[in-house]
Design a protein around this nucleic acid. Structure first.
Lengths: 227, 227
DNA sequence: GGCTATCCTGAATACTCGTTCAGATCGCCG
DNA sequence: CGGCGATCTGAACGAGTATTCAGGATAGCC
């Protein structure tokens, strides 16, 4: 349906093609609404309103509400992956990279952002194949990134994991578990505590002293008040 | 609404009051439907059908669909807690108890059963206060049980946790995270692997050799083929 | 300028439920 | 027995919402 935008030949010289722009805006609006109201509570009208268009257009572009939800997921996946890769590439060593992943997951960074969306995704994945595929892909990528950092650290002689696969799986699962508390705003669970708990577990798993992950990164300018 | 069953005076001499029995059946049917279709997909008719009654009766007893869902949650909580306590009381030492908890969580035992319901609960708790309260209570109880086992083991000189609160929180969070994989039937995640991963993490956290949690319980009769 | 395909709108349609309601049924008591 | 309250049923109602549709605007192209 919707013609798969067959003849977009007319190269846009003046400005970016408006339709494409509109499409993207709708997808981002969809993500925002899902975050806010959940998959189950998201209506076509909500998406249209959030995107500043009509419900007709949402259906015109995505065929159905389910289509919009699904495409929003793959959009999220693209954005997430792009950000993760560029963020990771921007820092040097394994210790710093592990800390970065903790930052991203705890909500400080842009990539993971709000875990609410992830909880929603898990539940939808129980019964919807597209959601299942999206989640699996997202999870695999995140876990692969983590594993890369672990392996890198082991090669550098900094980390000493007993079993790389098990360590990777446990550390990413621990993140998910802690994330539930964070998403539900469990009293006592803050991004800082999330980070501390996870990095301490990483220290245990990787056979390094917990201090290895302390210090820096959290409060960049505190000692030198004004400079 | 529904009168809180005011005058149930008429003491039932012959058999248990049918209405109470019916009520319980409806609650259990509700839980089954939630497990199967999720909170979002559960309709009054589904519950009625699963319980073998009419939709009118469901509303008569619980006032609304939301009421039925909420009461189903507290029913689950009661059942869960009762089973957890009695199971834990039935085994002797800290090591055995920790293994029992791994069994229960991995799906071998009756208490946790299917993690699907838990994922559903987390998401509903994002926006529904009753669900939030139910989840918090369930979580607190489970975590308290875990903490008790850890403290008991520490007192006996078997476990050596560096920080009881952090260890408890991490081990229960890790369970939640692994449970997601289990609920989604991630390839490679089985109850056995779940148990192994979690108990190995426990060994790390508690400063005991991983072998401490191996052996027994898994395959009771393997060496002596026939007896 | 006209023609056409694409993009876009908002009202109309059709359908799915939650909830209401007008009574049946049942067990019990005076 | 006759009445009464609690329990139970299923049809009818109404609100909410995905999707359809009849057309309008727009931009490129001859």
């Amino acid at each position: 349906m919707a013609g798969t935008t067959s003849g977009q030949a007319a190269g846009g010289s003046t400005a970016a093609r408006a339709p494409e722009e509109r499409r993207r805006r709708i997808l981002e609006a969809t993500v925002a609404v899902i975050r806010d109201r959940g998959f189950a509570g998201t209506r076509v009208t909500d998406i249209a309103e959030a995107a500043g268009t009509s419900s007709g257009l949402v259906l015109y572009h995505f065929g159905s509400l389910a289509g919009a939800l699904t495409q929003a997921l793959t959009h999220v996946e693209d954005v997430f992956y792009g950000e993760l890769e560029s963020e990771l590439a921007a820092v040097p060593g394994p210790v710093e990279r592990l800390r970065l992943m903790a930052d991203l997951a705890s909500g400080a960074g842009p990539a993971v952002g709000d875990w609410t969306l992830w909880l929603e995704l898990w539940v939808r994945a129980l019964r919807d194949d597209d959601a299942r595929a999206a989640r699996e892909s997202l999870d695999r990528r995140w876990r692969a990134a983590l594993r890369r950092v672990v392996v890198e650290g082991a090669a550098a002689g900094v980390f000493h994991p007993a079993d790389v696969a098990a360590t990777t799986l446990r550390l990413s699962s621990l993140m998910d578990g802690l994330a539930i508390q964070l998403a539900l705003a469990e009293p006592g669970m803050t991004p800082a505590r999330f980070k501390r708990l996870w990095l301490d577990a990483a220290a245990l798993e990787l056979g390094v002293p917990a201090q290895a992950f302390r210090g820096r990164a959290a409060r960049p300018a505190r000692r030198r008040a004004a400079s």
